[in-house]
């Protein structure tokens, strides 16, 4: 009898066959095709569009990390790298800039980072073409990221998926973590003196109740916030709170267009506390004397 016909060898072949046949079946049970990526990050595109509280729809790209690892906001801080997501939509569909949730302030005073632990969603706003109501659309999502704990890994993934256009309500709790428009009560002014410009954000203490109130700058080419990566804390005096944010604009470094003063006003430091988007051109801010 040839050795490969021995019963024990046949059993090994049978076992291998079962394992190999079983692998594709297991993969099909995933909600989306498993992305090829470096551990410890899993990226998935949810199988249906999400309906936001304002009635708009978004594609949800969900990142899930192993415990103790973290990924980064658009300004990673002192180290790390921004999480970048791109989505290709069918002809006629329009997409907005991906929205990242309010980041956590991570690290120590020596190395400050802005990012996420465990899980977070990147929302890609989408609008269907007028008169088009397909039951689903084909999308291709690509993402690049860096994930770190005591060491770092870079990762990327591309997935092509069919997404149902029957939008399901997005979790209100999760939606609260996305930056809101800056309340009109926040007064924005500029102090200018030779060699120094200071952005002043002033508001009634009661208008933004959660403490602390901090400013986290976004990374914008050509803008340098004096004092480093932040976060910058508001100072409460009487019934008012003020953030003094000295900055420099280096026009020759503004490789991505006119430099904007952009960042988040964080109110409180607990999960679900609000963040407000701040984004202005320096020239649009009224100047006051010192």
């Amino acid at each position: 009898m040839s050795w490969w016909k021995l019963p024990c060898i046949r059993a090994v072949y049978a076992g291998l066959g079962i394992v190999l046949l079983g692998l594709p079946a297991a993969a099909l049970r995933e909600q989306t095709p498993p992305s090829r990526m470096a551990e410890p990050v899993k990226m998935e595109v949810l199988s249906a569009l999400a309906r936001m509280s304002d009635g708009s729809d978004a594609l949800v790209v969900r990142f899930t990390m192993e415990p103790q690892w973290h990924m980064y906001w658009s300004n990673p801080g002192d180290s790390g790298a921004a999480t970048c997501v791109t989505a290709a939509l069918p002809r006629g569909w329009t997409g907005g800039a991906p929205r990242l949730p309010r980041p956590q302030i991570l690290g120590s005073a020596d190395e400050r980072n802005y990012g996420y632990e465990r899980t977070f969603d990147v929302l890609v706003p989408v609008v269907a073409p007028v008169g088009s109501e397909p039951p689903s659309i084909s999308v291709r999502v690509h993402a690049d990221w860096m994930v770190c704990k005591d060491r770092c890994q870079v990762g990327k993934a591309s997935v092509s998926v069919e997404v149902s256009t029957e939008a399901v309500p997005y979790s209100p709790a999760l939606h609260r973590s996305y930056p809101l428009k800056l309340p009109p009560c926040v007064r924005t002014q500029m102090e200018e003196s030779p060699g120094e410009r200071v952005l002043l954000l002033t508001f009634a203490s009661a208008a933004i109740p959660q403490r602390p109130v901090r400013f986290v700058p976004d990374a914008v080419a050509g803008v340098e916030w004096v004092g480093g990566t932040g976060p910058f804390s508001a100072v409460e005096r009487g019934r008012e709170m003020t953030l003094r944010l000295p900055f420099r604009v280096n026009a020759r470094d503004a490789v991505d267009g006119p430099p904007r003063l952009r960042g988040l006003l964080l109110s409180g430091d607990r999960e679900g506390d609000p963040a407000y988007q701040f984004d202005v051109l320096p020239s649009d801010v009224a100047t006051v004397g010192r």
């Binding site: 970048c84 990374a219 916030w225 990566t229 003094r244 280096n250």
Partner: peptide, 23 residues
Amino acid sequence: AILTVATLTCSALLGAAQQGDPH
């Protein structure tokens, strides 16, 4: 039809982290 691109580019060197009033 590539319609959505993340513009998460960065610039402006930011130095040492600092808490408190930056001024």
